[in-house]
């Protein structure tokens, strides 16, 4: 699904050049649950931005579903993001004054799903995160856990193959955090590829594979031996 070849990213500020990523290489297959972990300044956010097609690398090649993304225009990248990717952010990034329904519907506005089919798709996504009863509640009035579940429903509504979760439990209490991880776990079980970006070892251990970054380089990449079970954590 994803293949990075010698990806580098430099930021130029006046005369100083900062290398955020240096020759990063890896592949992620469909259905994987990967944690990308590293301390602040390790390059994990830069890597997430490149993987999610928000940003382009300075050097190297990024193949998404075998297609070289460097050949795609910004508009094509936006369409690709809309069709194949879902996003869950630490800060939820919801439209606070809009109801749950409209927040979840948002990606559909930029897709080619006809208007008459949108209702059913939104209801299904909201139902999958257990918020059917709050469809018309303004997101600003929801709890942190509920907000993140709305964000997950929004990430799911276009039925993407890949979900990016950027510190999804960072702003949540442990119970809500576990619930969110449990939902991501289920989605992975259903075949969705999940890429989780975190600086916490605890959260990273819910994934099947861990890529660790330091100073823009991969320092380890392998399966997690003692994987945490999000279901069990949530029940506790």
């Amino acid at each position: 699904m994803i293949e990075l070849k010698n990806i580098s990213k430099d930021y130029i500020d006046g005369e100083s050049i900062t290398s955020a990523l240096k020759n990063v290489n890896f592949k992620i297959e469909k259905g994987e649950f990967v944690s990308i972990m590293g301390p602040s300044g390790s390059g994990k956010s830069t890597l997430l931005h490149i993987l999610s097609l928000f940003d382009r690398p300075t050097a190297g090649e990024y193949f998404f579903n075998v297609e070289d993304t460097s050949t795609l225009s910004d508009e094509q990248l936006a369409h690709l993001r809309n069709k194949t990717m879902g996003f869950v952010f630490q800060a939820f990034n919801l439209l606070g004054r809009s109801p749950v329904f409209e927040n979840v519907e948002l990606p559909l506005l930029y897709s080619d799903i006809p208007k008459d089919q949108r209702n059913a798709v939104v209801l299904k996504a909201v139902d999958s995160v257990g918020l059917s009863g709050k469809l018309n509640v303004e997101c600003g009035h929801l709890s942190g856990g509920e907000k993140q579940r709305v964000a997950i429903a929004r990430a799911l509504v276009n039925d993407p193959d890949l979900i990016f979760a950027d510190e999804p439990t960072g702003n949540l209490d442990s119970k809500s955090g576990a619930q969110v991880m449990s939902i991501l776990h289920d989605l992975n079980e259903q075949g969705k590829t999940i890429i989780l970006v975190t600086h916490e070892t605890y959260t990273a251990q819910f994934a099947k594979r861990l890529i660790q970054l330091k100073d823009g380089e991969i320092i380890s990449d392998g399966a997690i031996k003692e994987r945490r079970n999000a279901k069990d954590e949530f029940i506790k």
């Binding site: 999610s52 928000f54 910004d74 508009e75 936006a78 369409h79 993001r81 809309n82 069709k83 996003f87 990034n93 439209l95 948002l106 990606p107 506005l109 930029y110 897709s111 929004r154 276009n158």
Partner: peptide
């Protein structure tokens, strides 16, 4: 600004 970023993240093009 944040709303614009979000819309772009979920697939809005510059034209949108």
């Amino acid at each position: 600004t944040k709303e614009i970023g979000l819309r772009k993240a979920v697939g809005a093009t510059n034209k949108d």
